[in-house]
Amino acid sequence: MFKTFAKAIQSLSVALLMGLPMASSAQQLSENASIVVESPWARASLGMSRPGGAYLTVRNEGSDPISLIGLRAEISGMASIHETRTNSDGVSIMAPADNIVIPPGGMFALEPGGYHAMLMQLQSPLVEGETFPLTLLFSDGTELEITVPVLGIGARGPEG
């Protein structure tokens, strides 16, 4: 039941994405149309004191490289992309990742254990079953707002 709902939200967000450029200027239309965001999801948060984490995949269907330079979300006082790495001693290190270049025809995945959207200073909790808007900022000035469904705290991927 929930999965169907999540799927519906997902298709809805994709549909919104497809629709968004229509409402923007002609300049943005071509730029936005070449960027496709798929499978966004976030983990439910425990209250508001802990940072939230969200994941998605960005595909560059255009002919020029594009950089994902940042995030903006009303739900977070400070949204940014972070990378988790494990060093040779098996120690996990989390650090901000900026200027992520996606080559033409390439894709970039934010997924557990790799890159994630780090949503600090939550303004309201991420509640399972709800959604929130997240804006992706690109190097060419494109701003893409997507709708992120919130899955359970134990979710492993966009399917739950």
Binding site: P51, G53, H82, S92, G113, L119, G154
Partner: peptide, 8 residues
Amino acid sequence: YCPDVCPT
């Protein structure tokens, strides 16, 4: 307070 590796 770990948003990624710990819940994963």
